[in-house]
Structure formats: structure tokens, C-alpha cells
Design a protein around this nucleic acid. Structure first.
Length: 544
RNA sequence: GACUCAUUGGUCAAGUGGUCAAGACGCCACCCUCUCACGGUGGAAUCAGGGGUUCGACUCCCCUAUGGGUUACCA
């Protein structure tokens, strides 16, 4: 068989050589020793969920921690999955969470010399490498129709053998030049298949940076590498691109583990070393009592947009992600509470190889700590930007009450035991909503031992003695007096000792005032809130 | 079905043949306290099951169970 002739027959228009791409167009990168080059290679559906961010984070850390390159390549080899504006969405979503690409699709400026970064625009490159495989007899055209393949599968299932295009089942594996010519003359469409030399029994060994040493089955399938339209499948594009773009570490989900043998064989056929593979575990979700992989179809609420809508701070999400990404991160954080997150040394060895369940409680807890470290002014900015997009009615109120809101956000945050009241924008807005007459409403009821009339009496007494210029202790002393005058213990401990002597204690009285003032039984220090609200508003609330 | 990866408390997990099996979130109790938080102290709660190997197994091997993944001219 004259493979050279076959390759010319199949790819008459491909003139470039492999050598041209490997050594001229895409030469070795000039990077310091140990620099890692990683890539995020999403398909352009534009939908990014937490799981994608999780993986992207690994890429980003690996690259930027080592002085390497973090690249965006769009795997748009499947036209059916394209969505308008997807690339912009991907870039902006990741940027929101602090992940910046150095190079690649849609990146401005000096974005690197390894493009184009859309696989759909690299057809010639792939064809050149496919042509080479044909030339050396390791790839061949296949004219099978989809229906024929379907039939093949059925037959194999019936005979209880592995399905697929391989060995004796590979009908077009050994077509003669004349037969190929004949098909071509008939204008039949064809794909290019890889000619595997593996066996069903064979195994090989490979190291995965996350999963350790693996011993896995060889590939023995003649997989499609170039589709009818001349565009490669993932398997081929991955090998060619990651080689030419000089990717050092391939981070991808564990669903790729089972096709790793294909990639390995193709790399070896070209005589190339594989990149270092890092197969990450999936982020899981609890669904009707069972763990399940995150799905873009079933879990729209885990899309990154969801967290933006609720107003989680990107720093909190990053911090959370890192706790599940590297098990030693929390420990490091406890020892270095004030260090920038990027000071943490991320390692692949500390990654879990079983899927973690997304834990909202944990995110919230981490978020509290993260927000505590962000100055109130910055939280205000974050909150108001969020409101502009998601809560337009509140947005104006926030803008016209800027100073007061900042003060509200600051209450109790100083000192040795600062409050951690703030988690995410929606919650924050609710948390301070009582300040605005537009949102104020009574949500909690008075303590059981106090009825409406009693409450009115207490509030009247409070109003009578209220002096806005009182300092905190003067103010509270007055509440103690009111309590005593109305039959409530001035100290909770007194009440505990002799519950029969009192109607309740000072805490009950405070609760009544608190509810009148902010509408709820729990809040930060009332005196501080009053100072922020101003005398007029305080009196008005008490009078109601 | 076949192939494959995984399995330590409710969740995230440390652990690599000898530990009273860390820690964090959540939960409960108590302390602090005018409420709620915060903080502190304490508590309940884990090696999926069964066989081996070994003086000794969470750690090594096998089987089973459960869950994930792949099985496309999708990625």
C-alpha cells in the first residue's frame, strides 16, 4: 500500500509540513524552568458552573504560581453546541472570580503566538497532522455511514463482544488505493480514523498528578480523528493542540480517564511525550439522597450566575473552592489569617480524588470570615454594584443613604470579638433593610410574657425618657430603670434566681424596644443602630 | 451489560501497618450576654460489608455492596 499516495489523495490541499508547525509556527515557549502552561478548554455553550470554576482554578494556580501561562482555548469542534456570546461570558465569569487568562480566545492585546485559539479555525493544522498519520499508515479513511455503524453496534451487542470500530469489525481498515479512489469518485463522504495497534488485553502505565500511578488498558479502537467536515474530534484536537501550544499540564475532569488510552496512543504515535495529566474529581450534588455529578442541565442553580445573583463575594467563593481543592488550605488559613489567598501554595498532591459534595453551609461560614476582612466601604461598593444589577429598587436607596449604610455595615465589626453578620448581598440587604422605611416591617412578635398593651406601656415609658444624646451606658441604665418600674428584673440573673418575683427581665423589655425599632427580635446593638437612624426616625418607630 | 474510578462522622477531610482515628462546617449543651451574633468550653457522630495477609490492619490483597464515569463523526 502506498500510504504517501493515499495521503495525497485524501489531503491534496495540505502543503504545510508537520515540521513547519512544530518548529516554526509554534516553537517551544521561552519560559523559566518549571513554568507550567495550562489551558481551560471549554466548549462554547457559555454555561459555566461551579465545577468548571473548580477546574479552572487548578489551571490558574498551577500557571500563575510557577510563572507560566494560563490560556483559553475554545473547543468549538461541535457546531451543534455553539452559543452566541459564550466566549465573552466565559471570560467575564472567570474574571469575576479573579481568574485571568494570559493568552487565548477573546483575550486582548498581546495574547500569544499560539493561535488561533478557536479549534474551528485550526482545521488546516489538524489536517496536516492527520495527513502525516495517513502517510505513515496510522490513519485511514472510513466511508461507513452512520446507519452502518449503528448496525455494527447492534451486531456486536448481539454477539456479546465489545462495541466499536476495531480489528475485524473495522470494515474500511484495509481498503486498497483503488477502492478508496472509487469511493471518492462516488463523492462519498468519509472520516479519518486512527489505526490503533493496541490490543484488548494490553496495558500501559502512566502517572497522573492527582491520582498517582495508573495501570490502564490500551486503546484498541480505531477512533475517528477527523470528522466528515474536516474538523477533528476532541481526542485528536487535544493531542495536536496541547502539543503545539506547549501545554505542560492538562487539567480535566475524571470523565476523560476512560479515553486517556486513546490520547496516549496518539501521542506515542507522533513520538511525543504526553503532558502531565491531572484528572480532577467531580464536584457533586446531593439529589434525592444520592450523590450526583453537577450537571448544567439539571443544576442551573449551580451556575456561576446563581452566586452572582445572590451576591456572594468572589473572594468568598475562591476561599471556599480552595478549601475543597486542597485539604491543607484551611489549616494554612488558620495559621495565616491575613495573608493574601495567592500566598497559599497550591499543590496537586493535596487534591482529593473522590468527588466532593457542594456545601452551602460551609460557603456561608467562610463568606462571613471573608467579608469581615473587607472594609465596610468596600462592601458597600460591592453591595451597591450588585443592587444596580439585581435589585434596582434598592439601588437608589443605597445610593442616597451611602453614609448610613456604611455605618450599618460597620456595626460591631471592631474589637476582639467582631460580629460576623454579613454573608452575601441578598442576605446583607435583608439584614439592614429595617433602616429603610420602605422595607421596614415587623417580622417577630413580642416575648410570650408581654402582650400588646404591656408593650405599649413600656414603649411609652421608653419614649418619655429617651434622650438621643445619651451615651450607651446612660441609655441602657434608663432601660433598667424602666424595667424595674414595671416589674421586670433589671438583671437577667435576678430573674433566674426568683422568677416568681418578676414579670420578666430587662432582656424582655429590650426585645420590645428592639422589635419596635427594627422589626425583629435579634439585631446588633440597638443603641448603635439608633445613633445611625437618627432621633426623628427612632421616635417615629417607637410611636407607631 | 462491559470497562473503569471511587468509598473515614450529616458534609469537607487528616491518616499511608502499631494513633485514645486530627481538624473544619453543621448539630446539641453550657459559659459570656439586654436579643441575635461573635467568642469560649464540652458533647453526640466516622473507617460500607465479608473474607484473607500479618504478632498487629482505616492503611496491603480478594469478593460483595453502593456511588461516579465511559461505552458518539459530544466535549
Amino acid at each position: 500500500m502506498d500510504y504517501k499516495k493515499l495521503s495525497e489523495l485524501l489531503f491534496p490541499n495540505i502543503k504545510n509540513t508537520m515540521d513547519y508547525y512544530e518548529n516554526e509556527k509554534y516553537p517551544k515557549r521561552n519560559l523559566p524552568e518549571g513554568a507550567k502552561v495550562t489551558r481551560l478548554a471549554p466548549s462554547p455553550t457559555g454555561f459555566i458552573h461551579l465545577g468548571n470554576l473548580y477546574g479552572a482554578f487548578v489551571d490558574e494556580r498551577l500557571a500563575h504560581q510557577s510563572g507560566g501561562v494560563f490560556m483559553l482555548r475554545i473547543e468549538d469542534t461541535d457546531e451543534k453546541r455553539k452559543v452566541e456570546g459564550a466566549v465573552e461570558t466565559i471570560i467575564s465569569s472567570l474574571e469575576f472570580f479573579g481568574l485571568k487568562f494570559d493568552e487565548g480566545a477573546g483575550i486582548e492585546g498581546e495574547s500569544g503566538n499560539y493561535g488561533p485559539y478557536f479549534q474551528s479555525k485550526r482545521a488546516e493544522v489538524y489536517q496536516c497532522f492527520a495527513k502525516y498519520l495517513v502517510e505513515i499508515g496510522r490513519a485511514y479513511p472510513c466511508f461507513c455511514l452512520e446507519e452502518e455503524l449503528e448496525e455494527l453496534r447492534n451486531q456486536q451487542t448481539k454477539e456479546n463482544v465489545n462495541t466499536g470500530y476495531y480489528g475485524k469489525w473495522a470494515r474500511d481498515r484495509d481498503l486498497s488505493l483503488e477502492e478508496v479512489q472509487e469511493h471518492l469518485d462516488n463523492k462519498e463522504k468519509f472520516v479519518i480514523r486512527f489505526r490503533s495497534e493496541g490490543t484488548e488485553e494490553g496495558t500501559f502505565e502512566i502517572d497522573d498528578a492527582i491520582r498517582g500511578h495508573l495501570s490502564i488498558h490500551e486503546n484498541y479502537q480505531d477512533v475517528v480523528i477527523l470528522k466528515t467536515n474536516g474538523i477533528p474530534t476532541y481526542h485528536f484536537a487535544h493531542v495536536v493542540d496541547d502539543r503545539l501550544m506547549r501545554i505542560t499540564h492538562v487539567v480535566r475532569g475524571e470523565e476523560w480517564l476512560s479515553t486517556l488510552p486513546i490520547h496516549y496512543e496518539i501521542f506515542k504515535t507522533f513520538g511525543w511525550d504526553t503532558p502531565i495529566y491531572c484528572h480532577t474529581a467531580h464536584l457533586m450534588k446531593m439529589d434525592e439522597g444520592a450523590k450526583r455529578k453537577l450537571s448544567k442541565r439539571k443544576d442551573p442553580e449551580l451556575g456561576l450566575g446563581y452566586y452572582k445573583e445572590l451576591g456572594y463575594h468572589p473572594a468568598a467563593v475562591r476561599e471556599y473552592l480552595l478549601t475543597i481543592l486542597n485539604s491543607n488550605f484551611e489549616e494554612w488559613r488558620m495559621e495565616n489569617p491575613d495573608s493574601p489567598i495567592d500566598d497559599f501554595e497550591f499543590t496537586l498532591e493535596k487534591m482529593s480524588n473522590s468527588g466532593a459534595l457542594f456545601d452551602l453551609d460551609k460557603l456561608n461560614n467562610i463568606s462571613k470570615d471573608v467579608l469581615l476582612k473587607i472594609p465596610a466601604v468596600e462592601i458597600y461598593e460591592f453591595l451597591s454594584n450588585w443592587a444596580k444589577e439585581y435589585k434596582t429598587d434598592a439601588s437608589e436607596l443605597l445610593a442616597s443613604n451611602k453614609d448610613e449604610v456604611i455605618k450599618l455595615l460597620s456595626v460591631g465589626r471592631d474589637g476582639q470579638k467582631p460580629r460576623k453578620d454579613l454573608m452575601y448581598c441578598e442576605q446583607i440587604l435583608d439584614f439592614i433593610s429595617y433602616y429603610f422605611d420602605e422595607y421596614f416591617k415587623i417580622v417577630d412578635s413580642y416575648p410570650e410574657n408581654i402582650n400588646e398593651d404591656e408593650a405599649k406601656k413600656l414603649l411609652q415609658a421608653y419614649l418619655n425618657t429617651y434622650d438621643h444624646s445619651d451615651d450607651q451606658s446612660q441609655w441602657f441604665d434608663k432601660i433598667r430603670v424602666i424595667s424595674q418600674e414595671n416589674g421586670y428584673a433589671a438583671k437577667p440573673k435576678d430573674y433566674k434566681k426568683n422568677p416568681d418575683m418578676y414579670k420578666g427581665h430587662v432582656g424582655d423589655v429590650s426585645t420590645v424596644i428592639r422589635i419596635a425599632l427594627v422589626g425583629r427580635a435579634s439585631s446588633p446593638d440597638v443603641w448603635e443602630l439608633q445613633q445611625i437612624m437618627g432621633e426623628e426616625k427612632v421616635r417615629r418607630r417607637i410611636e407607631i
